[in-house]
């Protein structure tokens, strides 16, 4: 996805502080993005020092179904590692 100057940027630190822990927090956040449906967004992870595995799982689920093109920027190595881990787990998992 190319980033254009017109794309809305949301600084996640303003919503979450430096930590993203619960699934509920992610659900509430994505619910608040309803107005951007069918559009594009940049989520700026600057200042997010930790995101839990559960939160990443919920994030990846919601990203798939929210109808918004989302681009993440400024992820720390720690946050990136958690995203990669959960993405692999979701790929390998079987739906029940």
């Amino acid at each position: 996805m190319n980033i254009s100057n017109n794309m809305k940027v949301i600084e996640l630190r303003k919503n979450f502080g430096s930590l993203i822990i619960t699934r509920k927090a992610i659900i509430d956040f994505f619910d608040s993005l309803a107005e951007f449906s069918d559009g594009s967004l940049i989520l700026d992870f600057e200042g997010i020092e930790f995101i839990s595995r559960s939160a990443v799982h919920e994030y990846l689920r919601r990203k798939t179904i929210c109808g918004i093109k989302v681009k993440e920027i400024n992820l720390t190595q720690n946050v990136k590692s958690m995203f990669l881990l959960v993405a692999r787990q979701m790929q390998n998992a079987v739906s029940v």
Binding site: T22, R23, F50, S52
Partner: peptide, 12 residues
């Protein structure tokens, strides 16, 4: 952080 994150989210 990981342990607290997982165990507290389980409660939720």
């Amino acid at each position: 952080f990981y342990l607290i994150g997982e165990l507290t989210d389980n409660i939720s």
